[in-house]
Amino acid sequence: MCVALPGKVIAVRSHDRKAVVDFNGNRVDARTGFVDINPGDYVLVHAGCILQKLTEQDADEMNDIFSEIGSEAGA
């Protein structure tokens, strides 16, 4: 199973079409592709590629669901 994770864009590098995305303190580079993003946007990332923008509410809800799943798996 593949999972796309929500993160917050910290910086955008237009010269190489990549962005720095923060996932709860873990920062990674992700390819922007054709998604028009700006610092502060919430995005859905899979395999190092930004798939789409999200609202902050959607990102928070997804993070809550993943936390709940993680808690149940550890029980």
Rank of each mutant, 00 (worst) to 15 (best):
T32A: 03
Q52R: 08
E68W: 10
M1C: 14
I65S: 10
G33I: 10
N26P: 04
K8A: 06
V21D: 02
M62A: 05
I37N: 12
G48Y: 09
L54I: 09
F34K: 08
A11E: 11
S71G: 06
L5P: 15
G40A: 06
V3N: 01
L51G: 13
N63T: 14
A4E: 09
P39N: 00
T55W: 01
G33K: 11
S67A: 08
L44M: 11
E56N: 12
P39S: 00
E61M: 11
G7C: 11
H15I: 09
C49H: 14
M62E: 04
D58T: 07
C2P: 15
D16M: 11
M1A: 14
G48P: 14
G40P: 08
E68S: 13
T55Y: 01
K18M: 07
D29Q: 04
D22H: 04
V3E: 01
V35M: 05
Q52F: 13
N38W: 06
A59Q: 07
G33M: 07
F23K: 02
D36G: 09
D29Y: 04
C2R: 14
V45T: 08
M1Y: 12
M62I: 09
D36P: 15
K8D: 05
A47I: 15
S67F: 12
G74A: 09
E72Q: 06
D16G: 05
V20E: 00
V12Q: 12
V28W: 03
M1F: 15
L5A: 12
V45C: 08
S71V: 02
M1S: 15
Q52A: 12
S67M: 08
K8G: 07
K18N: 12
I50W: 02
D58A: 05
C2D: 15
K18T: 13
D58C: 05
D64C: 04
I69G: 05
N63W: 06
F23D: 03
D64S: 05
L54F: 08
N24W: 04
F23L: 02
L54P: 15
F66D: 05
G7V: 11
Q52C: 13
L5F: 10
D29F: 03
I65G: 11
V12A: 14
A30I: 02
A11S: 12
F34I: 15
D60H: 13
F66I: 10
V9P: 00
S67R: 08
A75T: 12
A59C: 06
E61N: 04
E61S: 04
D41F: 01
